[in-house]
Amino acid sequence: MKRLAREGLVLVIAVIPFLTNGIVQAPAASAQGGGDIGRGRALYDGRCGGCHSLDVNRTGPRHRGVIGRRVASTDGYDYSPALRRVGGVWTPDRLDAWLQGPQRMAPGSRMYLTVPDTNQRRDIIAYLATTDGSER
């Protein structure tokens, strides 16, 4: 009986994200197949850090809390008209598509850098999922 109760609990926990239809989302690392957060941070610093940071707008907008945030909505950043037209919310899947080809998603946007490696994208997104919306 205890075994069935444990298995039932595991099933309920596994099914909740699907039943809530995105209201409660599974962590992005899970959604991206369990990316390596430490590797993602190093990749973010090395590949993205020249134009972006978590807390300060630079050439590109700040990224703390990007997952779940409306596209082109960071205060104090002047987005390109191309990105403002995209609309919607940044999800792990959308970030994955963006990193594969920002010019495909928003032709005329200011970002040209791509991350062609699936594992690197997954790791970067897993790292970004660990940041929340509060500035540090």
Rank of each mutant, 00 (worst) to 15 (best):
M1Y: 14
M1Q: 10
M1T: 11
M1D: 13
R3E: 05
R3F: 05
L4E: 09
A5D: 06
A5C: 04
R6N: 01
E7F: 09
G8R: 06
L9W: 05
V10Y: 07
I13L: 15
V15K: 06
I16D: 10
F18L: 15
L19Y: 07
L19F: 12
L19P: 04
L19C: 12
T20P: 08
T20D: 13
N21H: 13
N21W: 11
N21S: 07
G22W: 14
I23F: 12
Q25R: 15
P27G: 11
A28D: 09
S30F: 12
S30T: 11
A31H: 01
Q32L: 12
Q32P: 02
G33S: 04
G33C: 01
G34E: 00
G35T: 05
D36F: 01
D36C: 03
R39G: 06
R39F: 00
R41A: 04
R41Q: 11
R41Y: 07
L43G: 01
Y44V: 05
Y44A: 12
Y44I: 05
Y44S: 02
D45I: 13
R47C: 06
R47S: 11
G50C: 03
G50I: 04
C51Y: 00
C51D: 02
H52E: 04
H52S: 01
S53T: 15
D55M: 06
D55T: 08
V56G: 01
G60E: 05
G60V: 07
P61C: 11
R62D: 00
R64C: 08
G65I: 13
V66P: 08
V66R: 00
V66G: 09
V66A: 13
V66C: 06
I67K: 00
G68T: 11
R69M: 15
R70H: 08
R70I: 03
V71Q: 00
A72K: 02
S73V: 06
S73D: 13
T74E: 13
T74G: 03
D75K: 10
D75M: 00
Y79W: 07
Y79D: 05
P81S: 10
P81V: 07
P81R: 14
A82H: 02
A82L: 02
R84H: 02
R85E: 15
V86I: 13
G87H: 08
G88K: 08
G88Y: 08
G88D: 07
G88T: 05
V89N: 07
V89G: 01
T91C: 05
T91H: 04
P92K: 07
D93H: 06
R94I: 06
L95T: 11
L95N: 08
D96F: 15
D96G: 04
D96T: 12
D96N: 14
A97P: 02
A97K: 14
L99T: 05
L99H: 04
Q100M: 10
Q100W: 03
G101M: 10
P102V: 11
P102T: 12
P102S: 14
Q103V: 02
M105I: 15
P107A: 05
G108H: 09
S109E: 14
R110S: 14
Y112S: 09
L113V: 09
L113H: 12
L113P: 00
V115T: 08
P116V: 00
P116D: 03
D117S: 01
D117I: 01
T118Y: 13
N119L: 14
N119V: 12
R121P: 01
R122P: 02
R122T: 03
I124G: 05
I124Q: 07
I125N: 05
A126E: 03
Y127P: 09
Y127A: 07
G133I: 09
G133Q: 10
S134T: 14
